[in-house]
Design a protein around this nucleic acid. Structure first.
Lengths: 243, 243
DNA sequence: TGAAGTTGTCTACTATCATAGACAACTTGG
DNA sequence: CCAAGTTGTCTATGATAGTAGACAACTTCA
């Protein structure tokens, strides 16, 4: 393999190496935490220069798939889903961008009434009728988070059954004519998973969770839904845009 | 789209353009004989320099998918299947790689005896018992070639019925324990289709055919099968590796 | 015949790809 | 502590990718 390949195929050599390593991670040849072969050894197996291997590893590291430790080796990262926190964040887009298949699943939909906090977040009166949706979201077959979502029962009648059919909050809102929405201020805390969430997230008891409270608004700033989500901390990593 | 894309993805820009045009040909947006948009127009639609478009078109032309006519335009070629002649050539892989579905079909299987030529090719004695298989191979629904294959009746008992069931020479050999095989020297000539082949290839009389004689060997060099294939010249194009 | 539009070819420039070698910085294990 | 092995960084070189502009050669059509 040489520069000729790039010329004839239009695919850079380092990309082929990176794809090969990524396939190795994907099909379990290299498990999370494993040490990859040394750069020299990789270079020999792919018959390329060590610098080309480094270019490939750098690309994988930038995506968070591997982590290089000077003097020791390069290791497969515990695969956390990078979850950028922006005003426009869609679970399906984030998970899909990582090459995983996003899925949503309804656990329970029930009527509820607004507490003082919920009423303030949603701009409603205390005791106003709400729909509460408990849902779980997965990447491929791994549960990522469980979330409790509250919507005004008057603005979104039958929201539960719509979510059950569409399995997507974005599509639910679309169904009610909301074309776009933004995430408002997001509060992030951490805690220990409780028994019911542990079962739903397929987590051992005592593991840490990331708790996210957020309210989505339409483009005019009117509150639409407010959520209380619990993420399996070992499976996700929030990225705050620095700028 | 800019040079940044190449850097970040490892896929050359011209490759993306070439793939886009090829997809257009594959899904019928550009039919055989059609004139492609001018290089300038393609450059604008892909937001790329004209030279980059030319690189893409050159790659497609080299594979025989398009043909440029100076002063007039670039046209989609009558689609010939590119058939690389290597030591390891499998009809199904070649056709499958072109996005077409390979099929094989048994016409006739009969007992035969080795002539002097066949005996020499297969390393047998003159008059040794052989199985002769007449088969036709198609891509999608288009007949590509008819071939006559001879095997030793002693080494491959009942080869005819095995081929009828598997419709693949590779699988037939697998059935008899041959895990891999290589093509030896290949003789290529041309001729005019005869009446029986014309009917089988769905060709008008008088059309040219490519005649290929080859013998496959196992990895130890022992002859396995010898073939006499007739390809519809207008539907295929052999690629000889230059190196 | 001539103008417009097409592909072919040339030069020039910058950035990236890939290779090569050397050495520094660091970790691990004896 | 030392040696071996690992990743990080630097310089250097040549080939390729992509952009840019200009002009030649050719075809088509009015």
């Amino acid at each position: 393999m040489s520069m000729q390949d790039t010329a004839s195929t239009g695919v850079a050599l380092w990309r082929l190496v990176a794809d090969g390593i990524e396939r190795g991670i994907a099909d379990g040849r290299f498990a999370a935490g494993d040490k990859l072969p040394g750069e020299m050894e990789i270079a020999e197996t792919y018959r390329v220069n060590r610098h080309t291997v480094r270019r490939a590893l750098a690309a994988l590291a930038e995506r968070g798939l591997v982590r290089a430790e000077r003097g020791s080796g390069t290791y497969v990262e515990a695969q956390r889903i990078a979850y950028p926190l922006r005003s426009r964040t869609r679970f399906s887009e984030i998970v899909g961008a990582g090459g995983r298949e996003p899925r949503g699943q309804l656990i329970e939909a029930a009527d509820d009434v607004a507490t003082r906090e919920l009423a303030r977040e949603l701009g409603l009166k205390v005791g106003a009728p709400l729909v509460r949706i408990e849902a779980i979201r997965l990447a491929d077959r791994t549960p990522i988070c469980v979330s409790t979502t509250w919507l005004s029962a008057e603005l979104f009648p039958d929201a539960g059954s719509v979510f059950a059919a569409t399995r997507s909050m974005t599509k639910l809102l679309e169904h009610f004519g909301v074309r776009d929405y933004r995430r408002g201020a997001t509060r992030i805390t951490a805690g220990i998973v409780d028994a019911t969430d542990a079962a739903r997230l397929d987590l051992p008891l005592g593991r840490p969770i990331l708790v996210v409270d957020a309210t989505d608004h339409d483009l005019d700033g009117k509150p639409l839904v407010t959520k209380h989500s619990r993420f399996a901390a070992e499976r996700v990593e929030f990225l705050v845009e620095n700028g």
